[in-house]
Design a protein around this nucleic acid. Structure first.
Length: 464
RNA sequence: GGCCCGUUCGUCUAUCGGUUAGGACACCAGGUUUUCAACCUGGGAAGAGGGGUUCAACUCCCCUACGGGCUGCCA
């Protein structure tokens, strides 16, 4: 039996949850959940200058909204700093690392002297005799091999080779005793038992350095899968000028989480003709081989379309629940009991044509407004004297009607015939009366949701 | 500068040496219709460029172009 799969998402808490990070988390989640494995969460907060608890909270909120649940406690990388230091010292005693007393000034001078800011720094302390060590602060550097090559077997990018003379002796432990990212990731991934590392391909080069640390400690290698970054619609690296980059912004725009997951899964991953699917279905299909090698562009039109499918298929109660949550983050007034009741009755038919929550609210607007109904200019145009008269007589005819579509249909049809107009001509003033606008759901659907009393009241009001 | 990665319709992708290069979004044209949508049908649309390897290349190799990443006592 194979060892259980363990994946992780390891964001640094310096801001909101980036949409690209959300997708990375999603891929890790799908992969682990689809194979009975574990999905862990670790906050890479070793940079004390830039890490904030607010950012951590925002990241957790974003993941929670996306529906990506993690196993166990959230790991704080910073809190593991003693363990990192311990490993650095183990490397020292294994002879795979050394103390370097070069100061940042000396390194800067070296770069300046070599007239190239990108020159590879070679520490003079690499082979120094410990008896010559000064009583001064030092960093612990990896004693990286200088010849040969380091080969990464990446599940997305394939075999990637690095010439070792291109790599420097990276710092593992800073002079203040805190670990650098390079050391911390490896130690944490090892200790947490991470078997598969799925992350952005901006880390592909780092993987070579990471491998050197695994090798230095004689630790088994994880399986790497470096996924391409997400780009904006123009093909450039996604940035704020493209609009929404934070996951929570998508929530605020009203995209349902299930649609968001579906869209993000298909962004950079494909499996035959699979397009619309639930997360459960995605877990069964998702595999590393299906991940594309090129960066994918965000396409809001397709996002919307995907969300539309999920909106239409959503369970009414769950949809109402998510809509309520959306209204809260969007800063909208909470629904009154009456609104909630009418809205849930409207949901079955308004959800089939809405793609986002604002659209859903827009289509269900008739169920949320109160008398007197504000009638916009376009709708007002259909309320001339003639149609007001028709509405008035219709009000009387509906007085004792049984309130079902089969009963209402013949009444409205007859009313149109009697007035010598087509049904469309009759529907327009009814829309105006019931919804105050020209674009509404079917007049029958609205009448049924509103009920006899409210319908008659609105018709009478418009007929005045 | 060096090193690394990428490149199939406008977009997301399928294809894993032999297909009329498939699907989806978007777009265009019809249809349905009680408005807006939604929905249905049809259509146009692709292997970055150049060399190889092979009976055969989108698929394998090389070069170029373009895009991206790394090159920190950031992650």
């Amino acid at each position: 039996m194979n060892s259980p799969i363990v994946t992780r998402f390891a964001p640094s808490p310096t801001g909101y949850l980036h949409i690209g990070g959300g997708r990375t988390a999603l891929f890790n989640w799908l992969f682990a959940r689809g194979r009975g494995g574990k999905f862990l969460l670790r906050i890479e907060d070793t940079d004390r200058e830039r890490s904030t608890p607010e950012a951590t909270a925002a990241i957790l909120r974003g993941l929670t909204w996306l529906g990506l649940d993690w196993d166990g406690e959230v790991v704080s990388q910073f809190e593991r700093k003693d363990r990192h230091a311990e490993v650095a010292h183990q490397m020292l005693s294994r002879g795979t690392a050394y103390k370097c007393f070069s100061t940042t000034e000396e390194i800067a001078d070296f770069r300046e002297a070599s007239n190239a800011s990108y020159a590879v720094f070679r520490s003079p302390w690499r082979e120094a005799d410990p008896t010559t060590y000064p009583d001064a602060p030092y960093v612990i550097r990896m004693k990286a091999p200088r010849t040969g090559e380091t080969v990464i077997e990446d599940r997305v990018q394939g075999t990637v080779r690095f010439q070792n003379d291109q790599l420097d002796d990276m710092i593992c432990l800073r002079s203040d005793g805190t670990p650098t990212y390079m050391l911390a990731v490896v130690v944490d991934d090892h200790d947490m038992g991470v078997t598969h590392i799925i992350r952005g391909d901006d880390h592909l080069n780092n993987a070579a350095r990471h491998k050197m640390i695994y090798d230095a400690m004689d630790w088994p290698l994880p399986i790497w899968a470096h996924i391409p970054l997400i780009h904006g619609p123009d093909g450039k690296k996604l940035s704020k000028r493209h609009g929404a980059v934070g996951v929570e912004e998508y929530q605020a725009m009203g995209y349902p989480a299930a649609g968001m997951r579906n869209y993000l899964t298909r962004l950079g991953w494909g499996h035959l003709d699979a397009e619309i699917f639930t997360s459960e279905e995605a877990m069964k299909m998702f595999d590393l081989d299906g991940i594309g090698r090129g960066p994918a562009r965000l396409d809001f039109k397709k996002l919307e379309n995907t969300c539309g499918h999920h909106m239409a298929r959503a369970d009414d109660a769950a949809l109402l629940h998510e809509l309520t949550a959306f209204m809260a983050v969007a800063g909208l007034d909470p629904l009154t009991e009456t609104q909630r009741d009418l809205l849930s009755q409207a949901l079955p038919f308004v959800k089939t044509s809405a793609k986002t929550f604002p659209q859903l609210l827009e289509k269900a607007n008739f169920s949320l407004i109160f008398r007197p109904i504000a009638i916009d200019a376009a709708a007002q145009a259909s309320l001339d004297t003639v149609s007001r008269g028709i509405l008035k007589s219709l009000t009387l005819q509906l007085q004792n009607a049984l309130w079902s579509k089969t009963e209402l249909e013949p009444i409205l049809t007859a009313a149109a015939a009697e007035a010598g107009i087509g049904f469309g001509k009759l529907a327009a003033p009814i829309r105006a009366a019931l919804a105050g606008r020209t674009a509404t759901p079917s007049v029958y659907d609205m009448m049924l949701v509103l009920g006899r009393d409210e319908t008659l009241a609105r018709l009478a009001e418009a007929a005045e």
